[in-house]
Amino acid sequence: MCTMISNTVGIRGAAKGRPGWFGVTQATVAFDHPVNGGLEHAVLLDFSNYDLDPGARIAVELDLASARALVEKLTAAMAAAEAGGYAPDSETWH
């Protein structure tokens, strides 16, 4: 890695790619060279399940402003869900 900026967290959920839906077990957030887009560096999001194979991955590459906007909307949606009583802490993915 060039920047060495990479953080991985275990998650529970599902993602849809070309083969269809599959369970995802981890998310990686990195800031490094993207495959697309012509930027030297970008925010790289990977939702993956490497217990399946390296191709079991949903990849998203974003510029920094888009990543910040996404974080804002994620945070807003979670706050609204909690405020509305739709998301008790006990409810987890299974």
């Binding site: 890695m1 991985t8 993956s48 490497y50 191709g55 990849a59």
Partner: peptide, 13 residues
């Protein structure tokens, strides 16, 4: 093994 970008993502993770 997989495509280079998939393997790279796993290495990064």
């Amino acid at each position: 093994h997989g495509t280079p970008d998939d393997v790279t993502a796993k290495v990064r993770a």
